[in-house]
Amino acid sequence: MTRRPPKVNEDDSRLFREAIGDVRPMLVTETVPEKPRPEPHPHMRDADEAAVPAELLVFDYDPADLEVGEELSYLRDGYPPKVLKQLKRGQFSIQADVDLHQMNAAAAQLTIAEFLAECRHDGLRCVRIIHGKGLRSKAGGPVLKGLTDRLLRRRDDVVAFASARPMQGGTGAVVVLLKA
């Protein structure tokens, strides 16, 4: 439904002309086109990209510290050392895994808890948690690696864990043995 404007009567037209007064037509002038504007350029992105190589060379923590305690290893009291040795040698078959890359600590903590609960429910015994090596972490070193280590040590259902073998993710992953 389209609305038409109301008809304008003579009184309205006369009042309008009186209100605006005398008018004169505008002179038409030819405008000179202004010079074309330059294309936008992402200066901040260029600056960020240029800063990356320098940032990669700056370590707020000593990489040597990371190398010394790099491998994770744990065996719950009451289990024979042979179990941890077998785990480190890759003698258990990994039945499931979860990748924590790009997660913050809170999301990783929740993901680990849910993953291990699901694995226990499904009767899985040996699983892998990929936490990464923490190469992009700031001053505190690898955040997710340390978090994974602390969380697994506190869990009653974890018998042992050790850094994965090189072909399974090396020190960027941990293989976990759960209670049967």
Rank of each mutant, 00 (worst) to 15 (best):
R37Y: 12
E39F: 10
P40Y: 02
P40E: 09
P40L: 06
H41I: 10
H41G: 03
P42G: 08
P42F: 07
P42R: 13
H43V: 15
M44G: 11
R45A: 15
D46H: 14
D48Q: 14
D48H: 15
D48N: 15
E49W: 12
E49R: 15
A51M: 15
A51G: 05
V52P: 00
V52C: 04
V52R: 08
V52W: 04
E55H: 12
L57M: 09
L57A: 11
L57D: 01
V58W: 04
V58K: 05
F59K: 12
F59C: 11
F59P: 02
D60C: 10
Y61A: 01
Y61D: 06
Y61V: 04
D62V: 09
P63M: 06
A64H: 11
A64Q: 14
D65A: 04
D65F: 08
L66K: 03
L66N: 06
E67S: 09
E67I: 14
V68I: 14
G69S: 10
L72T: 00
L72R: 05
L72M: 13
S73T: 11
S73M: 04
Y74K: 09
L75N: 06
R76D: 07
D77C: 05
D77E: 13
G78S: 03
Y79V: 04
P80H: 05
P80L: 06
P81D: 08
P81F: 05
P81V: 09
K82M: 09
V83H: 07
V83Y: 02
L84I: 01
L84Y: 01
Q86F: 01
Q86G: 08
L87E: 00
L87N: 03
K88P: 01
R89L: 10
R89K: 13
F92P: 00
F92H: 02
F92D: 02
S93W: 05
I94P: 00
